[in-house]
Amino acid sequence: MATSTGDGLADATGVAEHGASAPGMPQLNFDHWGNQIFWLIIALAAIYFILSRVALPRIGAVLAERAGTITNDIAAAEDLKQKAKDAEAAYDKALADARVEANKIVAETRAEIQADLDAATAKADAEIAAKAAEGEKAIAAIKADAITNIETVAKDTAAAIVAGLGFSADDAAVSKAVTSRMKG
């Protein structure tokens, strides 16, 4: 298309007031269209080549890889979560078992100690009884001894008193009289 056409269109659109500095609307100067279209096609071809050969496959791969990584990580996290749950269950079970076991041991120990204690108590009771019996025997012996001594002293004293009063009496009669008095 000729320049005149461009000018004509520009005049028609009313934007060519500034005269010689520009040939109306530069967009409608069809002399320059060939140049722009030529360079545009080259630019588009270059961008298309850059994008379709290098950039888009690369970005697509990166995005796919990232999606894969995220999916894997989420799966791994699920797995670990399940494991943690299992571990918690195992722990709870172990704890409950241990508690039962501990209770059992406590009961057993208590029973054992009770048995020991009972045995010791019985033994101690027996010993105490034996000691008490022994003591009683000793007391009885001491008592009998004491009574004999008192009889002797009483007979001697009685004989001495009788003699002191000026009476004579044989020892047998005094002893018999004292013995009978003491019994009374």
């Binding site: 030529f38 360079w39 545009l40 630019a43 961008i47």
Partner: peptide
């Protein structure tokens, strides 16, 4: 059509 113009420059910058 083959002249290197400001169109060329700015399209090249876009590329």
């Amino acid at each position: 059509w083959y002249t290197i113009t400001n169109v060329t420059l700015w399209m090249a910058l876009a590329v």
